[in-house]
Amino acid sequence: MLEKILLYLDGGETVKVLAPWALKLAKAFEARIFAVFVVNQATLKEQAQKTKQKIKNLHSNLEEEAWAILYEIEDDAFEENVKISLILEEGKPEERLLEVLKSFELDAMIVSSQAKLDFKELIDRCQGKTLIIK
């Protein structure tokens, strides 16, 4: 039985592919989705070095994009009558995801196979929770 499902979103493409599927799953189980976006500081630093842009500006743009992604799926959830909570975190994605999983006592986590994540770390540390890599 799935009651609370973490859905990790890390960009536009994952929303298009993963979100509709996750909403279907949540609807089937009458589960609540916890949609999570993590602003990764390490990635921002890399981008700043590559693009010569200020981290502050990149951070601001990414945060706005993250909220837009979260509200986009919230709007879809509303249409589908699926309960949803939006969470924006900062830091190392694997750490934040595992923290959210634990603190809200979630049953499962859905991530894209394309996500830039250490899957071994997630599998090792998800403490018997269902991990769906799609």
């Binding site: 945060e63 993250a66 909220w67 509200y71 986009e72 709007d75 924006l88």
Partner: peptide, 14 residues
């Protein structure tokens, strides 16, 4: 516009 307004406001209020 609605999604962008929500996103901008959420960012502002963090």
């Amino acid at each position: 516009e609605y999604i962008i307004t929500l996103a901008r406001l959420s960012k502002l209020l963090r």
